[in-house]
């Protein structure tokens, strides 16, 4: 985490996120396992470590004003999740910089940090503390979180390994939105809930926007993005191909995919 505290704002008023010429590269190990044994044996054979450099994000610049809902689309491996992690401060930039104005809450993968042996109640506390909330604040918000997740009777005190994927997702979403974030990052997390919960989560997100909070959503469900987002970013092989009006960008993206406006791509899956 690279935190630099600034006394004078380096971000124009009204912007929630400013990304300046951001590039993100990282090396992945081609070897099966990174172990001391392998390292010594490799050194004995005089071989070098086999690594591959991945350029996940290339020279991306973006300004996101407060109160916008930004959708991010792109094929698998386009760098969407990496970009989200960089905005959250989890992955440091290789080049460029990101300025984030406000408290960030993340919902980057389902069941984030949840321990299956522990109850939903314990996991809410652990997840909230990891997100930087005080214990007292968490206790105050606990009922809101539990009510919003609306789990079947008694499940909140059952071990999370007994939860269905949908219940897991509901709880994770409920924790993330109830952290009163200024910026909410959601990665592929809206697909497990049922139709009723999906509608409820849309409503919650609209509510957050009215409070001038910012939401960035990565999703393959173009229908959802069209409905929810004011702007959409289309990423392809680490580059931003388009950023603008959601309908326009998603249409372009569909055109690129060469599938036309088929219903399958518009459905939430």
């Amino acid at each position: 985490m690279t935190l630099r505290y600034v006394s004078s704002p380096e971000i124009p008023e009204g912007l929630a996120v400013r990304i300046e010429e951001l590039s993100l590269r990282y090396k992945i190990n081609v070897e099966s396992k990174m172990t001391l044994k392998n390292a010594i044996m490799r050194a004995g054979r005089g071989e070098k470590r086999q690594v591959r450099t991945i350029e996940a994000v290339k020279n991306l610049s973006l300004d996101i004003p407060h109160g916008t809902v930004v959708g991010v689309v792109g094929a698998n491996g386009a760098g969407k999740s990496t970009l989200m992690r960089a905005i959250a401060g989890i992955l440091p930039p290789t080049e460029g910089r990101i300025i984030v104005n406000g408290k960030v809450s993340t919902l980057l993968a389902l069941g984030v940090g949840f321990n299956g042996t522990l109850s939903g109640r314990d996991n809410i506390i652990l997840g909230g503390l990891a997100a930087g909330l005080e214990r007292k604040e968490l206790e105050e918000r606990f009922d809101d979180i539990a009510n919003f997740a609306d789990l079947p009777n008694g499940f909140i005190d059952m071990p999370m390994r007994t939860y269905s994927a949908g219940m897991y997702g509901r709880l994770a979403f409920s924790v993330a939105v109830n952290m009163t974030p200024d910026i909410l990052l959601i990665d592929e997390a809206l697909s497990t809930g049922d139709a009723a919960f999906k509608e409820k989560s849309f409503e919650k997100m609209r509510e957050l926007c009215l409070e001038a909070r910012t939401i960035i959503i990565v999703s393959h469900a173009l229908g959802t993005l069209k409905e929810l987002c004011t702007k959409t970013l289309w990423m392809h092989q680490g580059k931003a191909l388009a950023f603008g009006d959601s309908t326009e960008v998603t249409d372009k993206y569909l055109e690129f995919l060469n599938v036309g406006k088929v219903s399958a791509a518009l459905e939430d899956f």
Binding site: T2, Y5, P9, H66, P92, R97, N101, A212
Partner: peptide, 21 residues
């Protein structure tokens, strides 16, 4: 669409502007 952001009680250490470099 701007608003004044002040840290709530108990959040005085939360940086409002974070710079990742």
């Amino acid at each position: 669409m701007t608003r004044e952001m002040k840290p709530s009680k108990g959040e005085s250490f939360v940086p409002l502007i974070q710079v990742f470099e």
